[in-house]
Amino acid sequence: MTKRSVTHATFVIERDYAHPPAKVFAAFAHPASKAKWFVGPENWDKSNHKLDFRVGGKESVSGGPPGGAVHYYNAEIWEITQNERIVSSYEMHMNEKRTSVSLATMEFKPNGAGTKLVLTEQGAFLDGIDNAAERERGTNELLNQLATYLNT
């Protein structure tokens, strides 16, 4: 029998982007845009990114280092307020094991001519496989990739 455990954690990341909320929001809402920055490290094998951006819609992508474990991201969108807020829940699996279930809120706030993005993740990390510090590090990397995407 697996030794069960749940570790709960919340983290908040704030980022300032020199682009208006509508543009930053669009990078989350348009499948072709999100697929450009919401991806694992360059040397990873990857699946196609899929996004059905509506309340009740799903998002999925997977990937991993060549020959290594495959990481699966499966999300469901629960709330959309155009250019202001997105709330989704997502599960991560490593190979066949579910490693976490999280609630992620993205708030897009006008900040001068730009946007303050506030990302709040509230997560349940399951059976000690993954942890919040690693998740926060990975999320920061994704937001760096978002900045690069917005600036190109």
């Binding site: 069960r4 749940v6 469901e76 629960w78 829940s89 599960e91 579910r98 279930v101 609630l103 349940a124 399951l126």
Partner: peptide, 15 residues
């Protein structure tokens, strides 16, 4: 509600 994880007699995770 959507059930994310169900482990009989041990754990239920839902959104």
């Amino acid at each position: 509600t959507v059930f994310n994880e169900i482990i009989a007699n041990e754990r239920i995770v839902f959104t």
